[in-house]
Structure formats: C-alpha cells, structure tokens
Design a protein around this nucleic acid. Structure first.
Lengths: 362, 362
DNA sequence: AACGTTTCGCGAAACGTTTCGCGATGCTAT
DNA sequence: ATAGCATCGCGAAACGTTTCGCGAAACGTT
C-alpha cells in the first residue's frame, strides 16, 4: 500500500531468494519455475508458486535484463510524435509488441536531425533490443553514424537506408498513390499541377516526386508540372502555396503530401478565398476527419499508418527471433499500398465546366 | 560496424573493467569519473576519459539501474495513444523528461479499462521510476489496485484519483471553458442546448457536465439543457447526435467535448445536411486543423495538451527529487486554463436572425 | 544384483555497475 | 621532525537474476 511513513529497517523489496527460502528450495529452482525453462516436478513447482504468491513476488526485470543481455525494450525514433500520423504508427507498433512482451521507448526529435541522432545514441546506451526509426532526414551523417553503432535490428518506417547499410524498411507506395492522383487530375483536364512532395530527404518525398513525374510524363505534360519540396511544416506549405497562387500562371490543381502540408495549403486557400473543387482541384494525403469532413470533402491518397507500425514491429520481432543483426535474410523494403480516394475537392473537370477558367489560364 | 559475420570468441561488449585496465586504474575510479560523484585528480580523470574514448566505452545503463535502484524510466499509460490529443501530451512530457535524463515507456489501452490496469502492472514490474496516467476510466477497481501497488510518484492527467489515494493531477479547466461556451450560446439566444460531455468516469467529463449545468442554472434555463454522456468515440457521438436531431424538439446548439465527439457530430450533421452556423450552433473541443479550417470555422474550447504533458512530467520529476512516495507535500490538482474561442459555427444569434428557425421550435 | 541412463534439484559463478570503508600519500602546523 | 589531517585511489561487497555443471536419486535393462 502507498504512503506508509513508518520508519524502520528499509523493507527491501522481496526477491527470488525470499521465495526460495519460504518454499524451502534453491534459488535456481525458483528461477526455473518462473522462466519456465527447465523441468521441475509439479509438487515443487506448486510449493514455489504458492510461496511466491503469498509474498507477492514479482521478478525484477532489471536484473533479468542484466543477466539475459536483453531488455525487451524497443526504441522508437520519430521526427514528431505529436503528428497524428506518427501517433498511429506508434499505436500500431505497440499493438504488436506488447503481446510479444516488449515495451516501446519513444523519442521525438522535433524535426531536428541532430536530435534524431542523439536519440538513437541514447536508445543504444539504454540497450534497447531493436529500433524503429522514422527520422527527420535519412541522410544525416550523425544519424547514420549513430545507427551504424547499434548492433540490433533496425527497421525504417517511411524511409530507407539500404544505400548505406542493410536495414529493413516499411513504406507506403507513395509513387503509385501519386500516379493515381495525378492521372485522375489529368483526366479531369488539369495540366498545370503543383505537388508539395515534402522533404526529398525522406523516401516518401522522393517517391511522391517520382510518381508525379512519371504520371505527367506518361501524359506528355511534364513541362507543366510544378514539383515543390518543402519541410514537413504547415507554415512552409502555406507560404509556398501563396506564392504559387499569386504567380503569373497559378496551378489549377494542388497536391499536398501530408497532413501538415494539407493544413498549410488550406490556410493559403482560405486567405485567397479560393474553394477546393470550385476554384481549383485539391488532393491531400492521409485520410482523417479534416479531409473527410471538409466541405467539399477532400480527395486524398490514403495509407495505413497503423498497419505500417504493426508491420515494422513484426519485422523487428522476426529479426530478433533469428537472433542476428542482419545475418539471416538480406534487408528488404516492404511496400504497403496507398490508395487514392476521389472526392469532390477535385471538382468535376476543367473541360466540361468553366469553373476553373478564372485561374486556369491566368 | 554492423554486419560482421566472422565467427570467433564472442566479443563481449566493453565494460568499465576494460576501461579501468587500459587506464591502469581501479574500476571504482572509472565509475567515479563517469558518475561525477567523488573527487578525482584531473590527470587521472583525463587518463580514464581518453581510455574510455579510445575503447568507445558506453556505460551499461541496465547495470546502473540494477545497482542504483532507479531506472530513469517514466511510464505513460493512456487510453488511446493514436488520439492526437494524447500524442501531444506525450510530446509535451517527453520535452521535459528527456533533458532530465529520463525516457518514456508508453502503453495504450485502446479504451479497455482492464488493459489500463494491466499496463500499470506491467510498468510496475519494469520498475519505472514514476507513472503518468490518463486512463480510460478513473474508477476501475483493477486500475486502482494496480496503482496502489506501485510505490513511485503517480501523476494523473485529465483525471483524478484523490478520492482514493493521494495522487497529483494535472487538468484543464473544462468547467470554466464549458461555462464560457454555454454563456456565449445563451447570449446568442439559444436555450435548447445539447452537450456531449464524454464519459463521466473521467474528471474532464464530470467538469464539463458541472460547467454546463452551472451556466444553464445561472441563466435559469437548466431544464432545457440536454447533457449527454457517451464513450469517447466518434460512432457513439454520431448516433447520439442523430437521435437528437431526429427528436421532437431538437437542440439549437451542440457542444462536443473532444475531437472524436466533434468528428461524430459533424458526420451526423452532414448526414442530415445541416450546416453549423446556419442551421444550428456548434462548439467543439480542442483546436486544430479540423476546427480551424472547417467552413465555417468551428468555435472551440481549447486547452494546451503539450502544456499538460509538460506539467505532469515536471510534477513527477519534483516528486522524484524529493525521493518520496507521497510523503512531501500533499497531492494536489493543478488546473490549467481552457479558453473559449468564438467562431462562425455559432452563427450570429437566434434572436436576430431566422436562420435557426427551422429547428429551433421543431 | 550390478550397471547405465535419465530426471531434477542444488550451489556457485557470472552480468556490469555503484558504494563503502580502508589505507597510502602529501600537506600544514607546532 | 613528527603528529595530525585532508585528499583520493583501491578492493570488495553488493544489486537480483540466469545458467552451467555436478551429483543424488529413481528407473529400466540384462
């Protein structure tokens, strides 16, 4: 019970030795019973179990970790934990990890690459068994060095380190999602399309860019496309979109690759009193209340963050099972689907309607 | 470096003893240098430091934990980590904890009270130094029992356990926020006001209810109020709002106490093709892209989740500093402001405009 | 009846730190 | 010159487990 302020001999927390004594067996026997490793006769096992129950014994997992050389801890390194998308990933990972007896140590870098690296080093010093990383930038020297020092499984989420050293990755298929989105826009008659891809220092940004260019090329209008890479930040997106809208030839369609970018984009549109679906076409990333409940609803490329987190966790567990750094199978990139959801924010098409006229040829 | 598949003597990770040997000093001296506790002559300290650097020595924090009896780990127990509000709390807590040398162990219960209790027990067995809890229900027997077994500082977030045993709390002032919101609605002419308070098993829900009733009473129209308590779940809110809208005397104003409830409410309004600010007044909780960028923007009672998380972490650290369970000062509830932000979703008033007529007296 | 084989409990040695008390060294003061 | 006193490095004992090898018993075989 809490709050006992009696003074006296410090009541050392009861350990395995107390149980052993009470049950009249050796310490190692108690250990066997609890770890379930060796065989121990039912009668004795019962004696131990009741003794433990009577004393309220709980194994000290710190001591276990020290002895076994495993902490049953998985580190999670993200650029921004408060981003709903990251939060979902964490939830998905925890969903897999907890039943397996692992707990999650989370750290956020607030988009500072050096902090990502520092976090990895910290988790290393805490001896986590594996790491799940979704860093601010993949190419930070410090981060790469820190990761290289760690000798447990590393799983990258929505990013990729294969070029530097073998690390498993779990990614959504942004390229495919982007292609579907752009195809849709082109079909509606759009040619001058701007895409906020997000940072190219992450695989997601690069894949969005690649999909964007591929789709435009296949429609023979790549020279009209406006790929734009900004930080994953609403303010940056807003400024960029305002610049686009105020330019001589503003785009007729906008793609915003992530919740923060969509938020910034919408702010810019509000400022210029432009409505998606009426004045221009808009496609966001990641479905959620904002996209779903906007008026009109906003088309999105949707991915499954929970699934990504769960898959990353499962991969880490698999590697841990094989008890090797990267010895077993080679590192591979697991690509999850991203699917385009058409909604009214794309309007009804530029050829059949004059709605986009004001901007289309401005 | 990673990926060395050479076989040979298992290259035991280098420990304090290796450093001691290389520096030609005793183990205890190395310990002193690293822990910074005792005095050690500059020259020797330098020898130790260089030896450690050359070997790439990193103290084993597991062994430290075992010896020191502290893990430098803080547990975080939430009902739903993927809720953006919880995610912000975690981020705020981490912001304070990390510079202090602590890391966060997060666990989510998916709104299952038993899982909350299990998570607390798990964190206890992992010997976390303190816990931050924001559970599904405050009154779950299992949870209370599990918390009682833990003998470190516990800080409740947006909930309260004082009635059961002394535990610090950090809460937003929902009562005040709700009063401001309802005052505003009444001033606009609304009388039949429905409030989705969220579960009453949490302090936030109870405070919202109290504020709601207080405000109505002060305006002498409490008999027209419709307080409604649902799970913190969009589906439940949607169903409840649909029921309200389809009732004989539907409310002219709606209050939704949380992001999930606001989401459900908006879904219901869309289904009935009702627009906030035109057909009825709507006030949500927790500002964010959804409220800010809706058309019209949605009035909210806003709180500072990051601040709550940071405050909770700071409280825990303070308790840890005093090195006592609850001995030092008595447990207290730290109330943070919640402020009402008026926006167009409230309309321009029921007396000056017929906009609400269709529903107001239906 | 003697021997080989299995079964299963026991003691002791780790795991990598921190901390405590002791003693050696160098200094000040008389 | 020597007693007294800090200063500071050293060895050893913990912290609470797991694991390894040993030996005692119990069994089956010839």
């Amino acid at each position: 019970m809490r709050g006992e302020s009696l003074s006296g001999p410090p009541p050392r927390r009861i350990g395995i030795r107390d149980v052993a004594q009470r049950a009249g067996v050796a310490i190692s026997t108690v250990s066997k019973v609890f770890s379930g490793k060796g065989e121990v006769m039912p009668a004795l096992r019962m004696r131990v179990l009741t003794a433990a129950a009577e004393l309220g014994y709980q194994p000290n997992s710190i001591a276990q970790s020290l002895r076994r050389g495993a902490t049953d801890l998985i580190g999670f390194v993200a650029s921004d934990l408060s981003d709903p998308f990251s939060a979902e990933i964490v939830a998905g990972a925890e969903f897999i990890l907890r039943p397996a007896g692992y707990a999650l140590l989370v750290m956020s870098s607030n988009h500072e690459p050096e902090t990502d690296a520092a976090n990895v080093r910290y988790l290393n010093s805490r001896r986590v068994d594996a790491m799940l990383v979704s860093p601010s930038r993949e190419d930070d020297r410090g981060l790469l060095a820190a990761l290289a020092e760690f000798d447990g499984p590393i799983v990258a989420i929505e990013s990729e380190f294969r070029s530097h050293f073998p690390v498993d990755s779990v990614c959504a298929d942004h390229r495919q999602g982007m292609r579907q989105a752009v195809d849709h826009l082109v079909r509606l008659g759009h040619r001058r399309i701007a895409a906020l891809t997000g940072p190219l220092a992450r695989r997601s940004g690069r894949e969005r860019l690649a999909g964007f260019l591929e789709s435009l090329r296949s429609h023979h209008c790549e020279q009209r496309g406006l790929p734009i890479s900004t930080d994953h930040d609403a303010g940056a997106a807003e400024a960029e979109v305002l610049r686009l809208l105020d330019s001589a030839a503003p785009p007729t369609a906008l793609l915003a690759g992530g919740l923060a970018l969509l938020t910034g984009t919408l702010r810019a549109l509000h400022k210029r009193e432009l409505a998606p679906g009426r004045d221009l076409a808009l496609i966001g990333w990641d479905d959620g209340p904002l996209a779903e409940l906007s008026v009109p609803p906003i088309a999105v490329v949707d991915r499954d963050p929970r699934g990504l987190g769960a898959a990353a966790a499962a991969l880490a567990l698999k590697r841990l099972g094989h008890r090797g750094t990267g010895d077993g199978e080679p590192a591979h990139v697991e690509v999850h689907p991203a699917r385009f959801i058409a909604r009214a924010s794309c309007g009804s098409g530029i050829d059949h309607d004059i709605q986009f006229g004001g901007l289309a040829h401005g």
